[in-house]
């Protein structure tokens, strides 16, 4: 990413984006290597798969957020969206006994929350961080109220398979991550909507004056962010086998960190979904490594906060150097 664009030749061997991803991959391998040196058990297949399974959940929350941020917005409500959607889905599954009702409920509630965010930003002209910050608390409050202090647990096996099952020896959440990653990648790079999202993020005025229906595209971005939060809620529920209010809130910081660490700029118009996958893996490895080094779990918020600050500083330095080189 730091390669000046002028080095970009007619047939680039590796684009700057690809180089940035490669850099992150190397960083992951280095940290993993170091941790293996500390504890050889780290590199065991089961630990690695377990870690990827954790990362996949984080990625699912961060995936829609990546799309929103690329389009020049922000969604702080993804965590509590996951909470509310998981609680509603758990109740639906518990009462009907049919997992598909849960799927329908989580997808609908996630999407509706995203839709409401988009509406508030478009119609009330609220700044995205304010609208989605309000939604964060409203959705969380709704979840607490709905659960009334209870925890719903004991999902049917057919449903838990989504979170705990294996397919071809690989945990199902990883497959879901793959599918979501591919779909998001297709949206970003193979649909006109995706290309318009990048353009909106890079220059909203120019997007408007190029005939892009900016408000409708923006609404769709927030809907997608809500939808992926709903999907994440299902995977979370299937893996934990329980829903309670408070599960999603701690995910917000790591999700933003994953997006930023993945190379998506908070200022919009650049980034990609594969970066977010790597960002999620990187964050999970860090947490995993801390556990390995016997650092208490109470440190996690601190680490997440520090990663967000470092990532935004790096983003700032890179984007400034880039605009200076131009």
């Amino acid at each position: 990413m730091t390669i000046p664009a002028t080095l970009d030749t007619r047939s680039p061997s590796l684009s700057p984006d690809a180089l940035a991803l490669l850099g992150r991959l190397i960083l992951i391998v280095l940290i993993a290597g170091a941790l293996t040196a500390v504890d050889p058990g780290f590199a065991s297949v089961s630990n690695l798969l377990n870690m990827l399974r954790q990362a996949s959940l984080l990625f699912l929350v961060a995936s829609g957020l990546t799309l929103v941020i690329i389009g020049g917005g922000l969604d702080l409500s993804v965590g509590s969206n996951l909470t509310l959607s998981a609680c509603l889905a758990a109740a639906a599954i518990k009462t009907t006994g049919n997992p598909w009702y849960g799927v329908a409920v989580a997808v609908t509630s996630g999407t509706l929350i995203g839709f409401t965010n988009g509406l508030m930003i478009n119609r009330l002209r609220l700044p995205p961080f304010l609208a989605t910050f309000g939604m964060l608390w409203v959705a969380q409050g709704a979840a607490y109220w709905f659960m009334a202090g209870q925890t719903i647990y004991g999902m049917p096996m057919s449903f838990r398979y989504f979170g705990t099952g294996f397919f071809l020896g690989v945990p199902l959440p990883i497959w879901i991550t793959l599918v979501v990653c591919v779909v998001c990648s297709i949206i970003l790079h193979r649909t006109t909507f995706g290309r318009e999202a990048y353009f909106m993020g890079a220059n909203q005025t120019a997007a408007l004056l190029s005939g892009i229906a900016v408000e409708r595209r923006r609404l769709l971005l927030y809907v997608l962010s809500g939808l992926t939060a709903g999907i994440a809620a299902l995977v979370y529920l299937a893996r934990l086998n329980a829903a309670e209010p408070g599960i999603g809130e701690p995910l917000l910081l790591p999700a933003i960190a994953a997006v930023l660490v993945g190379g998506t700029s908070l200022f919009g118009g650049s980034g990609n979904i594969v970066g977010t996958v790597l960002g999620a893996i990187l964050l999970t490895i860090i947490v995993n490594g801390l556990n390995l080094l016997n650092v208490a779990a109470t440190w996690h918020p601190f680490v997440n906060g520090a990663v967000v600050l470092i990532a935004i500083l790096a983003d700032f330095i890179v984007s400034r150097r880039r605009s200076e080189s131009g």
Partner: peptide, 16 residues
């Protein structure tokens, strides 16, 4: 830097 992300990050530090 945008205030909402900076303070979100420091929020994590303080909570931690």
């Amino acid at each position: 830097l945008p205030a909402f992300v900076v303070t979100l990050g420091t929020m994590g530090l303080m909570q931690g």
